[in-house]
Simulated scan of single mutants.
Amino acid sequence: MIATTVVGVPAVAAGAGGPCALPRSTAHHSEGLDSWHAGYPRPTRTLDALMLFLRFPDAVPYTTPRQLVDDHFPATTEFFRRASYGRFSLRVHPVTRWLEMPRDSTSYAIRRDWAPDRRTAYLRDAIATADRSVDFGRYDLVYLVADPDAPGIDADATKVVNFDRPLRADGAALRRLVTIFEHHPPDRNVLAHETGHVFDLPDLYHRPTGGGGDWDTRVGDWDLMGSQFGLAPEPFGWHKWKLGWLDASQVRCVREPGATTHALLPVSAPDPHDIPAPEGRPRLVVVRTGTARVLVIEARARYGNDAELCTEGVLVYRVRSDVASGDGPVEVLDGHPHSEACPDESVYPRLADAPLGVGERLDIRQDGVRVEVRGRTAHDAWLIRVTHTERP
């Protein structure tokens, strides 16, 4: 019954995207944005989240539900308000009392790689327990928060669980549930990361085989879907476009060979309303390099969710819409491959200084693209020149 993908739900048109909007594929959490998967709520309005708190017969909680609410809110709501330029509001509705599960915490054998039968039992028990007093039909998202100090709890098991066939409660189809097993206080931005999956965003980290190695080699600190601990957790501009927080007028599409010049506002900067033409308000340059891949160019600066980033500048990354979540759909291209930065704070210092500064350039030979940073404008935009020598 439990699966890691959602099936059988059609995609719907997501608005004008133009020739640089990659097509959605069957890959889990595809980075295609020519359409929207109708099985996911799109965060372009106010969404209501139900938060439930589960205790177990084998433990007495050391924390209160109100303390656990405060661990995540209003911080998560504020993260998305800043990231969406105010276009999306996440409104939480906590049931601030413990709901008693019918079995001991140890009986569910909670782990990151959870046995499907134990996970199914946990979710069925949780929904049945809450359904006596909660109307699930009123909410867009559901967070299930377990007593973090119960003996059977594994904090590494926090994740979104999707269903082959939705559970039903109060006439509502529950297609996914966010299961939270975090310590108190929790990991930084962990709930924003998991909520990103509810909006069809993929994992950008790489899980090494055999338990060793580094998880953050593909995107480093950039975008919280890579690491919730990153210094630059602001979502990539590509994700903002996918979610509906940027529109096609803020994206410059490069498809034909030639050289073009652009002024890019940092993706984390507040949405301006006083920048005159011809500079406009672009946030992204997208270079189409294949049927299912693009290069994306954006500016990153110390605003909002990126206030603690290591290196400001122009970031270049590759996006593929035919690669599944966790398999590398996004790859940051390192503008300084022979150096690193912020070794004491960065999750992957080799990519912490990936952005290009003024006077620097990056040649992506396999795609026939050169990116040069020419300067800055009075409105804090970054002036870039993109030379595209090959037709996709």
Results as ranks from 00 to 15, higher is better:
Tyr62His: 14
Leu144Gln: 11
Arg97Ser: 12
Val178Leu: 10
Asp187Asn: 14
Ile127Val: 14
Asp135Ala: 10
Asn162Tyr: 07
Tyr108Ser: 08
Arg168Ala: 03
Val160Asn: 08
Arg132Tyr: 11
Thr195Asp: 01
Val69Gly: 08
Val160Phe: 09
Gln67Phe: 05
Ser105Lys: 09
His93Pro: 05
Leu123Tyr: 06
Ala121Asp: 10
Asp164His: 00
Gly86His: 01
Gly152Met: 12
Thr76Leu: 07
Phe136Trp: 01
Asp71Asn: 13
Tyr85Phe: 07
Tyr62Val: 15
Ala192His: 00
Glu194Phe: 13
Asp154Ile: 06
Gly137Ala: 11
His184Trp: 06
His197Phe: 04
Asp156Leu: 11
Ser105Tyr: 10
Arg103Thr: 07
Phe80Met: 05
Pro166Gln: 05
Pro61Cys: 11
Phe163Ala: 01
Thr64Gly: 05
Asp135Leu: 07
Met101Pro: 10
Phe199Pro: 08
Val60His: 13
Glu100Phe: 01
Ser133Arg: 15
Pro186Glu: 07
Phe56Thr: 12
Ala130Ser: 14
Gly86Lys: 03
Ala126Arg: 05
Asp147Asn: 15
Ala169Tyr: 01
His193Gly: 04
Gly137Lys: 00
Ala192Gln: 06
Tyr62Gly: 15
Phe73Cys: 02
Asp170Tyr: 06
Thr77Asn: 11
His72Thr: 14
Arg111Trp: 12
Ile110Glu: 10
Gly196Phe: 04
Val198Pro: 04
His184Phe: 09
Ala146Gly: 12
Val190Arg: 06
Arg168Tyr: 00
Thr179Ile: 13
Asp200Thr: 03
Asp147Cys: 13
Asp104Leu: 13
Phe136Pro: 01
Arg188Pro: 03
Thr120Asn: 09
Leu99Lys: 09
Leu167Trp: 04
Asp187Gln: 13
Arg176Trp: 02
